[in-house]
Simulated assay, not measured.
Amino acid sequence: MNLDRPVAPDPYSLLPQVPAMAVSSADFIDGNALPDAQVFNDWGFTGGNTSPQLTWSDAPEGTKGFAVTCFDPDAPTPSGFWHWIVLGIPASVTSLDAGAGAEGDAALPDGAFHVRNDYGNKAYDGAAPPQGDHNHRYLYAVHALDTDDLGLDASVSPAVAAFTMGGHTLARGVLTGTYRW
């Protein structure tokens, strides 16, 4: 891997700015390394492949739903790498338990569903940077939306989900974990 390549910008800094929300996790501290529980479990990785617990607050008035995503802007691709996308989270929900990203949507709140990630799964799949590459950032974002229905289903690509969310985002909170193999 080319360790000299530039670090990608924060992709959310390139979008129209929205108010910030508070996001925290019982599983890791913002800016720190992800624990093994949030690391992939395949391709030589031996992590738990478990989505972290997330809690959020400060959603603005008019919030009708939420989306949760995990994105690696440092993946060696022109488009980064989507690890997790959950749509349809009701406005009354302010947290997800660890493991909510399990395949099958049973651990998600009623009405919420996974969109296929860049691994090809409708679930959370953990950190898995190329061996020897620089430290990667995993941006866990909670998006407060002005609608409870984006008009999407689980078959859309991560890019379509992110594009559609962008036009409905009232506020966003981002919690960053890092990982290097």
Results as ranks from 00 to 15, higher is better:
V142N: 04
S13P: 04
S13I: 09
K122W: 11
T46D: 04
Q17Y: 08
S57W: 07
R137K: 10
L14M: 10
R116M: 12
V93E: 08
H114R: 02
L87E: 02
P19E: 09
A37L: 08
R116D: 15
A102M: 10
G132T: 00
L152I: 03
V115F: 13
T63Y: 00
F45T: 04
D125K: 13
G62Q: 06
L152S: 05
D4E: 15
P90R: 05
D118A: 00
G48M: 01
A22H: 14
Y140H: 15
D149C: 02
S155F: 12
G101S: 03
A112S: 08
A20T: 09
L34I: 02
P19S: 10
G62D: 00
D153T: 12
T169S: 04
A162P: 06
Q131H: 12
L15I: 12
A162Q: 14
L54R: 01
N2C: 12
A8W: 11
F81H: 15
P158C: 04
P78I: 06
V7Q: 14
H114M: 05
Q131N: 12
G132D: 05
D146C: 02
T50C: 15
D133R: 02
V156E: 04
Q53C: 14
G173A: 09
T169A: 02
D74R: 05
A123D: 11
T63P: 01
V39M: 01
A112C: 06
P129S: 03
N41L: 10
H83G: 14
S13E: 09
A162E: 14
A162K: 15
K64M: 06
S157L: 15
D42F: 15
P109K: 08
L54Q: 00
R137H: 08
L108W: 02
P130G: 00
V93R: 07
G48N: 01
D125S: 13
V18R: 13
I89V: 10
A59V: 04
L87Q: 01
F45C: 06
D74A: 09
P11H: 04
S157A: 13
S25G: 04
V7A: 15
H83L: 11
N135Q: 14
A98M: 06
L14E: 05
D133K: 03
Q53P: 09
V23M: 06
P158E: 03
C70H: 02
A141I: 09
A33I: 05
A59L: 01
G101Q: 07
D110W: 07
S157E: 07
V142C: 01
L170R: 03
I29N: 14
G111V: 02
